[in-house]
Nucleic acid binder design. Structure first.
Lengths: 191, 191
DNA sequence: AGAATATGCAACATCAATGATGCAACTTCT
DNA sequence: AGAAGTTGCATCATTGATGTTGCATATTCT
């Protein structure tokens, strides 16, 4: 994106990455953690963090940008507008889970603070909405289902599933989608 | 609980209540809000807050204690061990939603910080687990369902539904339980 | 009215987090 | 080797939140 420094560029970028990863690890555990704690977790002096990120806000923004990028890519990779709804649902879920497990904090904050990230998230939400609409038309979702509620339930399940931090995201996704579509009941006594 | 002050007791208690309510309102919107903001929201000087609560920690603990009490009462009122599982599920859900809508922050933090509150929450979790076990035995939940996953899905849905802040908790509970048991799909193409 | 209690206001002390800077030491590229 | 760049360390200023206290002023109970 920039042509500022040629030499030693890889070193600096590696440090930036290390800090971003450490920040996610620390902040997901305690959103109020200090820059000192983040620096320590990254195995770096606090001043170094401040050299790379002008302010705490800038650091969080960078995390949000990074996570948002991965998020968008995760959705793209599933081709949710061209693949059959049910398949796309599984694929999107598995891909997004992978990102959300590693960047849960950054993704949650992205909505609130960063302007660009918010735009990307809004775009993804639209795509999600379209996917759900297609799923309903295809008979995957019931015809009488409230799409807004459906999307919120889906997000809630993703959030919950991501807490497992299981590396088998395929299995997580399978269980999640199964629960979303079939629920957990037998159907007895429910009219 | 205490016999310290007889006169003017009602005044002080009213102030305490006002502060607790304001704190919940403010902190649910921004967990990092200052005592100043809380005091302002309560229509009270910051010093008054500090007179009633020795520290920020004490304030949060008081919120947790208050919310936890209401939480336990909400579960009790549904008689989850004696009522038929499905009925109890609806009733508990509606009651808990009522509390969670008004005390979402206090209930979430309760688990982490306060020791007594944690005990109550643990007790409630046990009751929830038993209720789910009964539901499975009664054929309300499928026999092959993982109870741990079921409970987490249930919590996630409650958390999500509580965001609606709708005052019709009966309707919310109905939709929530319906989603939990039946899911949102038609069952087509799912083996 | 008088006593007890509660609150607002102003002021103060403390403390932790943030952000900036200069300097020496080290690594990497040419 | 020399230049450029990066980091660690020590240090300092600033800021915002926290918690305390004294005093004047209601408010309420008896």
């Amino acid at each position: 994106m920039s042509g500022t420094t040629r030499a030693l560029r890889s070193d600096a970028e590696r440090t930036v990455r290390t800090i971003l990863v450490a920040a996610e690890r620390v902040l997901s555990g305690n959103p109020a953690a200090s820059m000192e704690q983040i620096a320590e977790a990254a195995g770096v002096a606090r001043t170094t963090v401040h050299r790379r990120f002008a302010s705490r806000e800038a650091l969080v923004a960078a995390m949000a940008a990074w996570a948002t990028r991965q998020f968008a890519e995760a959705v793209d990779a599933a081709h949710p507008e061209t693949t059959p709804p049910l398949v796309a649902l599984y694929q999107v879920t598995a891909n997004v889970l992978r990102v959300k497990i590693d960047w849960g904090f950054a993704m949650s904050r992205a909505l609130i603070t960063d302007p660009d990230a918010a735009a990307v998230h809004a775009r993804v939400e639209e795509r999600c909405e379209r996917l759900f609409a297609r799923a309903r038309e295809a008979g995957v979702l019931r015809a009488d289902v409230d799409l807004h509620w459906a999307r919120r339930v889906y997000y809630a399940l993703i959030h919950e599933a991501a807490q497992a931090r299981d590396d088998d995201t395929e299995a997580l996704a399978a269980r999640l989608v199964d629960t979303l579509l079939r629920g957990l009941g037998t159907g007895q006594g429910l009219g």
